[in-house]
């Protein structure tokens, strides 16, 4: 068994090394535009879209990054123009508290049920 694991380990590390050279940090702009909804294209992100709107948006974000704006500042700027709808990751506020909270509450509740089930004598 240990031999098999060792061979596996060597194999995995080998394949990794051939792939490593591409590994590089993701560009910031990609990260931001992936989190933005293209408002005129159904269900696409700005990153994926080639529409005029999305292309201008990418350009503007590039300019904003150069000017030294942080990711959050860019999101806030766009939210002010287009509303919360434009970001794919809704921030936690009174409108979205249950969006983020409900699954976690259910998880805790489920955990309690299981504990009760297995500890009942």
């Amino acid at each position: 068994m240990k031999k098999i694991s060792l061979i596996l380990l060597i194999l995995i590390i080998n394949t990794l090394h051939s792939n490593m050279s591409f590994a590089d940090k993701k560009k910031n702009i990609d990260h931001i535009t992936k989190n933005l909804r293209c408002l005129i294209c159904q269900g696409q992100s700005v990153y994926d879209s080639q529409s005029d709107f999305a292309l201008s948006m990418k350009k503007l974000i590039r300019i904003k990054i150069k000017e030294g704006n942080t990711e959050d500042e860019i999101y806030n700027f766009l939210k002010e123009k287009y509303g919360e709808w434009i970001v794919y990751e809704p921030e936690v506020n009174k409108n979205t508290i249950f969006l983020w909270g409900l699954p976690l509450i259910l998880f805790i509740f489920g955990g309690l049920l299981i504990i009760r089930k297995v500890t009942i004598k």
């Binding site: 970001v87 794919y88 809704p90």
Partner: peptide
């Protein structure tokens, strides 16, 4: 009456 988008970052984070 508020519009929000829930996309990949939400699902990944949770």
């Amino acid at each position: 009456d508020a519009k929000i988008s829930v996309g990949p970052p939400f699902y990944h984070k949770l």
